[in-house]
């Protein structure tokens, strides 16, 4: 018998290598369910999962919803447009309202970092962080690690380059924790305006050019550029950004020969990755990431179910 000794999954930072492996292995077993004619098992029958999204997200929300449904849980989507603060409520009021609905698991996405952590301290239900501000996005990092493991057979010893707006990226932070813990060497790259202070203390090497970062890399992970960041003057124009940071064919000569290319989606084609690379089945694993997303989220729901006795 094994067990994920956690009430909540709030971030990769607080997960051990064993816990990460447990989720990945469980997810690998779940992959097959999605290939069945009846893509559903009765495991979480009678359990309810609230997908509480304070920030628009079609992909992650849909993925969690499908994961819940394939496990026969009742999934309820709540698109909360305003924060508790705007309503004049405290988070505790929000927590009590949620508890009154008596769910088993709450999947929470919020634009403000730390909100899942605050809520987790207030409710007895399990909280899964589906992305909080620029902090963590554990399910994304787990599906990324699952994809790397499937394509490369391992994570330990690989060089992974993460390129783009590291400053605002929860995907980068979760992957830095997870990949480092699983034994990969992680490097990051982006313009200095997109590089958070003290990033080296997280155990990564930081570069300002894509070429320096991806040299010999086994995995290249490109981050999405939020167009509205242009207003904060962290980059002057998409044209200039893409000219210097868009992954294109010429870069693939610098990576390891069998390097894979990843992106958390949705892609700005021609901004982060050139279309010919994004659609090249020889290196692009972007669609595998989506597929693994459901399995990883099934594993998270499954392992957290049963409460924290």
């Amino acid at each position: 018998m094994m067990k994920l000794a956690k009430k909540d999954i709030l971030g990769i930072e607080e997960m051990t290598a064993d816990e990460i492996s447990l989720i990945l292995e469980t997810a690998e077993s779940f992959l097959e369910i999605s290939t069945r004619e009846i893509k559903k098992v009765p495991t979480l029958r009678g359990k309810s999962v609230i997908n509480l999204f304070y920030e628009a997200s079609t992909r992650t929300r849909t993925s969690f919803e499908i994961a819940g449904k394939r496990l026969s849980a009742d999934t309820i989507n709540i698109a909360a447009s305003t924060s508790s603060a705007v309503k004049g409520e405290t988070l505790l009021d929000t927590a009590r309202t949620l508890e009154a609905m008596n769910p088993d698991i709450i999947v929470l996405r919020h634009s403000v970092a730390g909100t899942p952590h605050m809520l987790a301290r207030m409710v007895k239900q399990s909280i899964i962080n589906a992305g909080d501000g620029a902090h963590e996005h554990p399910s994304q990092a787990l599906l990324d690690m699952m994809t790397i493991r499937e394509k490369k057979g391992r994570i330990a010893g690989l060089k992974v380059a993460i390129v783009g707006d590291i400053l605002h990226s929860r995907v980068a932070r979760s992957n830095i924790y997870g990949l480092s813990r699983m034994g990969a060497r992680v490097v990051v790259a982006g313009p200095a305006t997109m590089m958070p202070r003290g990033i080296e203390r997280m155990g990564v090497e930081a570069f300002t050019t894509i070429e320096d970062a991806i040299a010999g890399a086994d995995v290249v992970m490109m981050l999405r550029i939020q167009l509205e960041r242009q207003k904060q003057n962290i980059f002057p124009s998409l044209r200039e950004y893409s000219h210097h940071y868009c992954l294109s064919r010429r870069h693939m000569k610098l990576t390891a020969p069998d390097a894979i290319v990843m992106h958390p989606g949705p892609i700005n084609r021609g901004v982060e990755i050139s279309p010919d690379i994004a659609d090249d089945p020889a290196c692009s694993v972007i669609l595998d990431q989506v597929n693994h997303g459901v399995a990883v989220r099934m594993a998270m729901l499954y392992l957290l179910s049963g409460g924290n006795e």
């Binding site: 970092a113 730390g114 909080d132 501000g133 929860r170 932070r173 958070p196 202070r197 203390r201």
Partner: peptide
Amino acid sequence: GGLMNEGYQATVLGLPG
């Protein structure tokens, strides 16, 4: 837009510095 001291801790917490 900042919410806490800019530096390593803000980087780890994902809060604007």
